[in-house]
Amino acid sequence: MNTRTSTETALPGGGDLTVRVWRGAEAGGFQEFATPRRANQTVLDVVTEIQREQDPSLAYRFACRVGMCGSCALVVNGSPRWTCRTRVAQVEENGLLTLEPLRNLPVVKDLAVEMEPFFQKWTQAHGYFEPGAEPAADFAPVAPSAPERQEADAGIECINCGVCYSACDVVSWNPDYLGPAALNRAWTLVNDVRDQGQDARLAAVSGDAGCHSCHSHMSCTEYCPKGLAPTFSIAGLKRATAKRIWRGGR
């Protein structure tokens, strides 16, 4: 339970923050709140304070508060962010915060979005380990210095927060597009030497919904709170699917 917001004292002379919060679902509007500025407060602290002190009907989502679970992402002053690790001082503009639900996902209520389409695309991109029909006869030795291991390491720390999906222009143009997170996950698995489902995975990430639709705008890479670079993972998938053509695939 987050008690920081109510026990930490307001900054002397800090004044109030004006917080515009999206209320409603797809149709709705902004409601304005005023909350005290507090030392080191995060955007999530502000939302929690509003919900607990001013309007208990406000819907939002969080769990870990420490940047692990990926559930608290919102659009803050126009940019998608993980709110638990974003300090107000970093993002407020003249004492104003505007909070909206993530883009490119259906709004359930207020700041909470439906994540189902996001995770469905992980499944469509074969973003799961495929052990094959027969269990492996032996351990697969994977050296930490192996190129495949390094490629997988570069993308493995994704916390599924949906920030990249919200930031992606291609998703907003083409709702079928698998999106940066699912493609990044597929790329880590393409580099898993134990995986037996590569051909089906490379077929799944090709086509009009797949990696070839990426415009390399790099919004995903710009906004990823974990500092990952899905754009480069998608470029890796483009190379891997091109090599697959030479091997006789389509």
């Binding site: 090709s206 086509g207 070839h212 091109a242 389509r250």
Partner: peptide
């Protein structure tokens, strides 16, 4: 876009 169209 298929990989073939992409390469083309």
């Amino acid at each position: 876009m298929t990989p073939m169209l992409y390469l083309a």
